[in-house]
Computed example of a mutant assay.
Amino acid sequence: MSRLTPPKTIAGKPVGPVGYGLMTLTLFGGIPYDEAIKPMKAALENGATFWNAGTFYGPPNANSLQLLKHYFTKYPEDASRVVLSIKGAYDGATQMPQASPEHIRASVDECLAVLDGVKSIDLFEPARIDPKVPVETSVKALVELVKAGKIGSYGLSEVNAQTIRRAHALYPPAAVEVEFSLFSRHALDKGGIVDTCRELSIPLVGYSPLDRGWLTGQFKTLDDIPKDDFRHFYPRFQPGNFENNVKLAEAVEQVAKKKGNTSAQVAIAWVQQQGVLPIPGSTKVPRVLENTKSVELTEAESAELENALSKATVSGARYPEMFQAHLNQ
């Protein structure tokens, strides 16, 4: 199989081989900012220079933006080291995309107001395609913001190959973000997202490379998931699906044990090998250190993973039904 490497630059700036997703630091609340910045600092010091944030990762007054303001106020010297991607133009209360020119401009202005000059926006992405707004209309608004100096570049999230081509024809995106892991391989379909981005030389960013914890090896039974955990709402963690997915997760774990690494490290290395930049997120420094460790898969290990995947099908959709209409659009 082909062995690729993740993009080395995004938005014209160098990025490390692993990025960092900030979602869990604020989405569910409860983590004091002085604690939350510890894994952020660890990620940066271990080469995760591409950070992925969201205006809807938490309430309007306590999401990624406020945390980033706190971090870069404490560490102003790190602003030039981080390539910051922010997803916005999305109503977290209704879970609806809002990618009209007016909403995009308002979302970017909100980000800039909260950040208050401590960090520039290197990449801004409408979090989902707005079904009421042609992608060309959204892109035109984003390009205007680039030319005005409010954002460094724009990206796309949860889009299909056709949408990527339409956007690129107007103005090339600096990156495309897609869910991508050993459990979520839809982007590899022939002529699909990965093939299109390679053809058009668009960097690919893979979120949820550990499939919401499935590929960490920590789930063996349903009792391993805390009662109030959000994963109880996700199809792959439902009874019936859960038991089937454990078998595939254990196959990854077997490869990892023989290699002397963790399941997470093997899963992240697989994403990198597809030419995609993985952006795992974690609230704990030890997990960040684990996720940013450099690991390379041999051809035999890659073949073993592919063999296991060919014999088992992941059970359950990526998201609950209420979110599915806005995926892969």
Rank of each mutant, 00 (worst) to 15 (best):
S80G: 15
D211P: 01
V18R: 03
D130I: 02
T49P: 06
A312C: 00
K119F: 03
V114Q: 04
D224K: 01
R318T: 01
S107E: 03
A267T: 02
F56M: 11
D109V: 13
L123S: 10
E136Q: 15
I193T: 14
D223Q: 14
K247N: 07
E306F: 07
T283Y: 03
G19K: 11
Y33S: 12
A264F: 03
P203W: 08
I37T: 14
E243H: 12
K74A: 15
V246E: 05
P239V: 13
E243L: 13
E243P: 10
S201Q: 15
F180A: 15
T73R: 14
A251Y: 04
N46S: 09
G117E: 02
V82Q: 01
I225V: 14
R212I: 11
P14V: 15
Q254C: 03
V252M: 10
P97I: 01
K311W: 02
A325V: 09
P32S: 06
K284S: 10
G19S: 12
N261V: 14
F124V: 10
V133F: 11
N46M: 04
P39I: 07
V252Y: 04
E199I: 10
A312P: 00
S310R: 13
V295M: 07
A106L: 13
V285Y: 13
Q272H: 08
K140H: 07
A174P: 06
A167K: 00
E321H: 14
S315I: 10
A93D: 03
Q238K: 12
P320V: 07
A161F: 03
G191M: 12
L204I: 11
E110S: 05
T283I: 12
Q329T: 11
A269T: 07
Q254W: 04
E296F: 00
V159L: 08
S310F: 10
T9M: 05
P235W: 12
A161N: 01
G281L: 02
P239G: 13
H168F: 14
A11L: 10
T5E: 15
E304K: 08
S263Q: 06
S282Y: 06
L309T: 11
K227N: 03
G213I: 09
A174L: 12
L65T: 03
L145Q: 07
G275Y: 03
F183Y: 05
P17Q: 14
A53T: 02
A36V: 06
E102I: 07
R166L: 10
A303N: 11
G19H: 12
Y207D: 11
R166P: 00
W51F: 15
E253W: 06
R166K: 14
P131E: 10
V205T: 06
R166G: 00
A36F: 06
L156P: 02
L327T: 09
F124C: 05
P76G: 09
A167Y: 01
F28K: 11
F124D: 06
P286R: 08
V246K: 04
E158V: 09
E304Y: 04
Y57Q: 05
I37Y: 12
S153Y: 09
E177Q: 07
L200W: 08
V114K: 07
S80F: 11
P76K: 10
T262L: 08
K69R: 15
L200R: 09
L222N: 09
G213W: 06
G275K: 06
Y75G: 05
E250Q: 15
Y57N: 06
F28R: 13
I37M: 12
P280Y: 01
G30H: 11
G21Y: 05
K190S: 12
L145Y: 02
F230Y: 11
L188G: 05
